[in-house]
């Protein structure tokens, strides 16, 4: 089958809401034709979300710094960052975040931190998760698919500890290894609807070997095509920057995570983070909608 007829066939199938199989995805992962790939992913994106793109304003709070001034009113989620050495420090940080967050969602840490803290306490991850939940945690900030041996039991543990949203991430898997992770994520979500979102681009950036633009948009598109059942396909505004994040919206992403919550606009109102993100979404021909840390639209 020629490349263009393959795409025509696949386009018909994704337009009809059909899931692509492993062979189709493998062929797509090998194509250098990112535009066709983008068209397919955009078709899925539009079927799921029409022209809506959500964004989330986040206050990033290093666990070892005071939180009070770091959480502007505009933040819709408080995200504790860093890797505390002990569970006690982690719990204290979550409690402090909860105190400033009020009704807003609090996220923190990675699944790897949970494992590490559990080991340090000679405890179980489930127990650590329960304690963090008791301190006011709503969600883990990262569940890195490429770093967990048994994703299914990880998600089951998180769900069992009472968490309502799981956000899947990729820590550093190279582009070639990601498609199989996205396929696994899709299968996982069928068993655990608590999986709300996936972020297809690495959270760990390597300054000496940065990912390329092709890699990035291809990963976003592959994730969207492999996992149409995961509702939210995220791209990180702070890590990837407005230009790439905006282009990713035309390759299947429907949610911009990690927009600075600061209302400061030293360079004028039009360059303030909120204006900037909305302007970029609109300039991509899409409609911005703000959401909160629990994936609820803010009217």
């Amino acid at each position: 089958m020629t490349t263009s007829s393959l795409f025509d066939v696949l386009m018909e199938r994704v337009s009809a809401g059909e899931r692509l199989g492993a062979d189709d995805l493998a062929q797509l992962a090998a194509t250098p034709d990112i535009l066709q790939l983008g068209m397919l992913a955009d078709t899925v994106r539009r079927r799921l979300h029409d022209s809506q793109v959500t964004y989330l304003r986040v206050a990033l709070c290093p666990f070892d710094k005071p939180f009070t001034d770091a959480v502007p009113l505009a933040a819709r989620e408080v995200r504790v960052t860093g890797t505390p050495d002990t569970l006690e420090v982690a719990i204290t940080a979550v409690e402090a975040a909860r105190a400033v967050a009020g009704e807003r969602a609090v996220s923190a840490f990675s699944w790897l931190d949970v494992e590490r803290l559990a080991a340090a306490e000679s405890s179980r991850p489930a127990k650590v998760l329960e304690q963090l939940r008791g301190a006011g945690l709503d969600a883990l900030a990262e569940v890195p698919l490429d770093r967990v041996a048994d994703a299914s039991s990880v998600v089951q543990t998180i769900e069992g500890a009472g968490y309502r949203h799981v956000r899947l991430t990729i820590e550093k898997a190279p582009a070639a290894a990601r498609t199989s992770l996205f396929v696994a994520a899709a299968a996982l979500q069928e068993r655990f609807p608590v999986i709300q979102s996936i972020s297809a681009l690495p959270t760990l950036l390597d300054a000496l070997r940065p990912t390329t633009g092709y890699d990035d948009v291809k990963s976003v598109a592959m994730a969207r095509l492999a996992a149409p059942n995961i509702p939210t396909m995220q791209v990180d505004w702070l890590r990837y920057g407005p230009k790439l994040a905006q282009v990713a919206l035309t390759f299947g992403a429907d949610d911009i995570d990690n927009v600075a919550a600061s209302d400061d606009a030293p360079d004028g109102r039009r360059r303030a983070p909120l204006e900037d993100v909305r302007r970029n979404i609109e300039a991509a021909g899409l409609e911005p909608a703000e959401r909160d840390g629990r994936f609820q639209l803010i009217s």
Binding site: I34, T211, T212, G213, Y214, D216, V247
Partner: peptide, 12 residues
């Protein structure tokens, strides 16, 4: 002006 990533995407 566009950065390496959008610069590379220009090739498409």
């Amino acid at each position: 002006t566009q950065g390496g990533k959008v610069g590379q995407l220009s090739l498409a």
